[in-house]
Each structure stands twice: as structure tokens, then as C-alpha cells.
Design a protein around this nucleic acid. Structure first.
Lengths: 335, 335
DNA sequence: GCGCGCTACTAGCGCGCTCTAGTTCGAGTA
DNA sequence: TACTCGAACTAGAGCGCGCTAGTAGCGCGC
């Protein structure tokens, strides 16, 4: 920077002004400074910048690598953050790199706020984080923590899916649970409520699982084993999310079960996996772009107005009917 | 930091020593400092740290959101970087956020080296980047640029796939090209060579495409239209990558073409999509973990020994036979 | 001629840390 | 006793910027 200043015949402060696009520099000087900087190959150093100005204007995003829905969200986070003048830093939680570690990395890089995509951490951890900094949780509700929250109305999504299935004549509808996964608890509750509402309480069954393909495969195996033991297959399965649904489909199709003729499957997320299936996965769409925008806006607004209370955004999901759901094997029989 | 120092009754320098785990502090003092820091809630500020020590020990990783293979790579990058004492910063290229922008973000955050996952940028850009900093390209060869390079032996992978198909009796084998995608040129070349080697030169056909599901779908439509126009379907397709293969499968299966009975499909990458298909995608596996480790090691070693020449690592891929490849419809007929 | 306001610019402190070059002190050695 | 030496600790400069408070110069109205 000093070099640029000298070569352009101005002071460092002036160079600083030019690079911050601040008023107080003549047009001519401005151009000269930029030209010289380009020649020398000077680019402002972010670390020093952050240090000097106290604020980093950087949002940290923690996500789970492999979760395709998260990449959809990230795609939406970048432009919205840029629009509001914020930088974005990504930190992935993976096998062997815990969420805590990922978040720690973000904080030590001076992120002013953290956006957590489908966090799986302890509520206590999240609350503490919320006290320490501005935090937004996407997809996972954290009851009493000081954390903004963006999610889709899980209940509504599940209800739409269930109504769709019941309308198709399904009665033996099973739900694969998402365990501690984001949204699972709400989905499970909504499933139970829907079964009750349709008078299918006796048929209700929640199979424990989680939001991975493996879980779907396992459940598939379980159901097949039960069938071989005499218990009939369910006619429809509401999976915990798309990945789980995909695993289930794989296991069933391999065993000769035809979807949707023998059994219907509904996923959740409408991650870009959904339309990959040859027949297309019927699923509940969450508007990732909109969720991302809300998350960013919440973070930024809490940043600019520090004592503001955390808020909650609930977006309406929408059932997307594709090829994996069809009439119940027994044919329609209105309950 | 000053607060911690004061409260612990030591100098700031000593606190610094403790937090850097450096020799020069008594065991007792060390514990006291850490305890006080914890009480106050002090955590060292990375920006200041970087600034002060001149080196950031941070690797930047540019990846393409949505590319599942990249997430596989990232999973491998984190632990290896940590092992070598480096921090990792992620920056995604998405729709509307160019690779240049993503890289710029990394550099301005003081990354010492950049690892580019399947970069799609101009060779000139990459070369310039290589001059400016330590850069490693994964999957994409950059002819004369000052950039390390990690990839799998595309030729070998394609050859294995082609041998597999020919062995199954296929002769009309089509290749969907990956356009400018990483590895495409090599794969195309190897496909042509394999066809020639098997005396199928006359049957060789490369359909332009790229590494996305959409491209696969389009090609599927094209082939079906051609069939309806009288030109027979190929008996096997070697797709540019897994995503393309998935799209193709979707299009074909929807139209009633049965895989692998009517047509075999082979992908490339063995991204975690591959085992999702009900019947499992036959594909060429690239060892993401190993590639990630090499990339990190290259970057670090060039960092520690600055005048070292860029290197190239070529890893052997392996054909993974799953359900989408089977005997040619006409039955085996050794060429 | 004077003060006024305005634009274009500058000096220099401080952000939170690391690091070099010390100082202090007690144990070991001749 | 006089010294060396290493371990434990400290003072203070400096990393590359942003920012506040200021100065220089100029046209303006009275």
C-alpha cells in the first residue's frame, strides 16, 4: 500500500480512500491510484482491513458437506449476502470435523454472524453460540436459544403429502423418522396428526432412521424382511427426507418391488436429487432460495440492530407430485 | 488478550506463548492463563494473528457447489490439512458467482495457496494465478501453467470401462462428451483410442455434452428421436461423468428403455450418486480421498519450499461394475 | 481584505496479535 | 564465590490497514 502511495505520489490514506470507494479523492487521482495498484499487483489485505475497522462484514456459514439441500441453500446465500454488502465464509462439517470445530473456524476468522444449515448440535451449544454472537439456524428449531430461525412449515408439508397419499387410497402409510435431523420432530408429529385426522391411527407407524441413503436402505431391508415373515408391506412410505427416500427406493427396486405400483414413496426437500430418479421422486419442496435470503437478512438485521430479538421465518412448502406416488395397490377406498 | 494477561498476572507476550503452545511458559502459568481466558471468554483473533505473523497457514479451496464429487474431495481435504497444521477456507463457485470471484475471495482472506477443484477457468487465468500464488488444480489439466496438478489417469479408467463393455459384446458404444469439463479431453481421446484398438473405429461416435444431469437428459432425448427416425440406439453409452449418466438413465427409463437389457450405461467419478440408482451405476471410481491428500500435500510442500517446481500426481482409477452394464442386446460377438 | 465553506489531501494512532531481543532468577559448575 | 546457563518471563516494535483530526488551497460573498 505504501508502495502504491509513493508511486502514485499520494499518501497511504488517499490510497485507502480510493480502495474503499469513499468520497474525498479527485477523479483523476482515483484513476491513477488504481492504475498504479494494478501495475504493482497490489490488492488490499482483508485480515488487516478487518483488524483495522473492527467490523469484518463477513457472514460465516456452517454446512454439512454431502447434504445436497445445503448446497442449494449456499447458492442462495451468496448473492443475498453480496447484495447487502457482506462477505461469506464457508465451513463444512464432515465426518471427523464436528460442527463445533467448523463453527470455531468461522468465529476465529472474525465472522460477525453464523448461519447454521441444519445444525445437529446440542441446544446448549447453540444457545451459548447465540449469546456469544449473532446466529441463525436454518431448518432446525432450537427451542429456547437466542438464535434466529428459518424453516419451512414442516407440518403443512407433511399434511399435503399425507392428504395426497390418502386421496390415492393409501391407508398403511409408514413414516421413516429422521432421528435428530433438522425438522424431524415436526415431521413426525405432523405425520401422527395426519394419520389421526384420517382415522388411520391404528395404522400409524414410525420407523426410526435418519437423513441418509443408508437409513433408507436399512428400512427397505427391514420392510422386506417383515414381508417375508408374513407382515404385509405398507402401501406408502413417507421418508424423512429425499436422501432417505432414495435409499429406500434403491433397496425396494432391487428386490423387485415396483414403485409406485406396489408401493408409493414420498420424500422431503426436493433437493436436486429428486428429479434424478428415472421416474422422479414425489417430494415436498422447500424453497431453498427464499430460505437462504431470510437467513442472511435475519443475520444482517440483527447485526445492524444489536438488541433486536431473534425472529422466526416459516415458509410454506409445496408438495411436488412426481412418479413415485400412485394409487394404493388395493385401489381407492375413501376412509 | 490484555485483560487475560492482567487477570492472570502475566504479560501479553506470555499469553501469546501459551495460546501458541510454544515453549517458554511454566506448566502452572499455562494452566492459569488458559483458565482465566476461558472465564473471560477470550479467543485469539485470527485476523490479527495472520496479520502479525505474516503467514496465515491457510489453504483456500475453490469448488463448485452442486458437484457432488467436490464434496467428496473436501471431505478428504480437511483432515489432511489439519494434519499438516493448515487451516482451510472454502469458497464456492455458483451460478452468478464466477470462479474468479471465488478465488479472489480466498486470496483476499490471505490464503497462502489455492486448491481448485475441477476449475473451468481460462488457462491464462490459471497461469496468472499460479504465478501469483501457489495453486493446485484437481481434475483439470492446465498445460503450461505454473500449477500443481492432481488427477486420475483418465485414459486408464476409460480403457477399463471400454474393455468391460466390449467384453460384454457391445460394439455400438457412444461417448457423451464432457465439453470443457475437467478430464473431458482425456476421456474423449481415450474413448477414441479404445474404439480403434477394438477395431470399432467405424462405430465411434462422440456426442457433445457437459457434466450435468441436463446434458444426459438431452442426449437421451436425442438418441430416442434418432431411434424413432430409424437409426438404431447404441447398445452402450459411456457418459462424461456420473451426473450425465444419471440424466441419461432418467430420460431413457422414462421412455421405456430398459437398462441394462436394452442398453448399458457407464458413468465416471463414482460420486455418491452412483450407488443411489436402484440398480447401481457402473462407473469409474476416482479415489477422492487420495486425490485430496495429494492436493493438500502439493500445496503445502510448494509453500514450504517456494522455488520447487509444480508437480503432477496421476492416480489409478478403477472400474466399479454395478447394475447399469450388461451383455449387449445382440449377445456377445467377439470382435 | 477577511472569513467562510468546500474539496483534496495527509499525519499518525491503534486494531489484536507475533516475534525479536532482551531481563531476571535460581540451579549447576569450576 | 564467581561464573554460566537455561527456563520463565517481558518490553516494545511492527504486521497492513481504517479512521479521526487535521492542513492546504481555492472560489465565494460581503
Amino acid at each position: 500500500m505504501a508502495d502504491v502511495a509513493e508511486k502514485a505520489g499520494v499518501s497511504r490514506a488517499l490510497v485507502s480512500i480510493v480502495f474503499r470507494n469513499q468520497a474525498g479523492a479527485g477523479q483523476e487521482t482515483r484513476e491513477r491510484v488504481l492504475r498504479v495498484a494494478d501495475e504493482i499487483g497490489y490488492r488490499p489485505d482483508n485480515a488487516a482491513r478487518l483488524l483495522a475497522r473492527g467490523r469484518s462484514r463477513t457472514l460465516g456459514v456452517m454446512f454439512t458437506v454431502q447434504q445436497t439441500f445445503h448446497t442449494d441453500l449456499i447458492t442462495g446465500i451468496y448473492p443475498e449476502a453480496e447484495r447487502l454488502g457482506y462477505d461469506v465464509l464457508l465451513s463444512g462439517a464432515t465426518h471427523g470435523r464436528s460442527e463445533a470445530k467448523a463453527v470455531e473456524a468461522l468465529l476465529s476468522h472474525r465472522c460477525e454472524a453464523v448461519i447454521l444449515l441444519g445444525p445437529d448440535a446440542e441446544p446448549a451449544f447453540l444457545d451459548e453460540l447465540g449469546q456469544r454472537t449473532v446466529a441463525v439456524s436454518v431448518s432446525r428449531r432450537v427451542p429456547r436459544a437466542r438464535v434466529d430461525f428459518v424453516h419451512s412449515a414442516e407440518g403443512k408439508g407433511v399434511r399435503q403429502a399425507m392428504d395426497h397419499l390418502v386421496e390415492l387410497g393409501h391407508r398403511r402409510i409408514v413414516h421413516i423418522d429422521g432421528g435428530r435431523g433438522p425438522g424431524s420432530a415436526e415431521r413426525r408429529r405432523a405425520y401422527r396428526a395426519a394419520m389421526r385426522r384420517h382415522g388411520l391411527e391404528a395404522e400409524a407407524r414410525v420407523i426410526p432412521g435418519h437423513h441418509t441413503e443408508e437409513s433408507g436402505v436399512e428400512t427397505g431391508r427391514l420392510l422386506l424382511a417383515e414381508r417375508d415373515g408374513g407382515r404385509p408391506l405398507p402401501t406408502a412410505v413417507l421418508a424423512g427426507n429425499d436422501r432417505c427416500a432414495m435409499g429406500l427406493l434403491m433397496a425396494l427396486t432391487r428386490a423387485g418391488v415396483e414403485v409406485p405400483r406396489d408401493l408409493s414413496v414420498v420424500g422431503y426437500d426436493d433437493s436436486h436429487l429428486s428429479h434424478l430418479m428415472p421416474i422422479g421422486l414425489t417430494t415436498v419442496r422447500q424453497d431453498a432460495l427464499l430460505m437462504a435470503e431470510h437467513a442472511v437478512r435475519f443475520a444482517v438485521e440483527r447485526l445492524e440492530e444489536r438488541d433486536r430479538e431473534p425472529r422466526e421465518a416459516v415458509l410454506d412448502p409445496k408438495l411436488v407430485v412426481r412418479g413415485t406416488s400412485g394409487p394404493a395397490p388395493e385401489g381407492p377406498c375413501p376412509a
